[in-house]
Amino acid sequence: MPDLGPLWLSLALAGVTTAILLLVGTPLAWWLSGTSSRFKPVIEAVTALPLVLPPTVMGFYFLIALGPASPIGSFWMRVTGDALTFSFSGLVVASVFYSLPFMVQPLQTAFESIGRAPLEAAATLRASPSDAFFSVAVPLARRGFITASVLSFAHTIGEFGVVLMVGGNIPGKTRVISIAIYEHVETLNYAAAHVLSAGLIIFAFTVLLFVYGSGRGKPVHVR
């Protein structure tokens, strides 16, 4: 039985990342869905960057931006006494950016498909904008939230390049499952690599099956 430490670390990383993304991505997606600001395309393009850039490009700049010599890295060092690179916290920061499109895009699509109509109706029923957001927009975008969370979580589990560059390969700290597989293969421990790899394939398939399957075939009564 291989060491399951990397699995738990991956799950923790994905969980924390998804939670932060829900807090950060929801207002961003909400703003994007309703704005006609000229900055909208710029923000959308920035949000989508992780989809097209090689993870090494992002990892490289994260390494520089989060390193002890950088303003962010040195600030973090002063506050926590720990370096941001090659740490779990650094992995979280990098993962949040790397998985941002997987949270923002499904949410934005969900909010856009709701449209303004139900929110106008809520306003005429005395719901303040924040009330309308939580009691109308969020429940109506429920499927978007599920899709976005599952995809963000799964994408974080599957990341490799960024993690390797920002976090390295420190057991119990930054050795997540994808790194552990790489390590097993490099050391020709194919049996352990098989267990983790096959496990990931089953995990990914289950997640995608859930995403594509949910909300389909739901009986809709129209008379």
């Binding site: 109509a117 109706a121 109506l140």
Partner: peptide
């Protein structure tokens, strides 16, 4: 009170 042409009931 505003009644819309398309009713706009909350589907959730």
């Amino acid at each position: 009170g505003y009644v819309f042409q398309d009713a706009r009931l909350f589907t959730h």
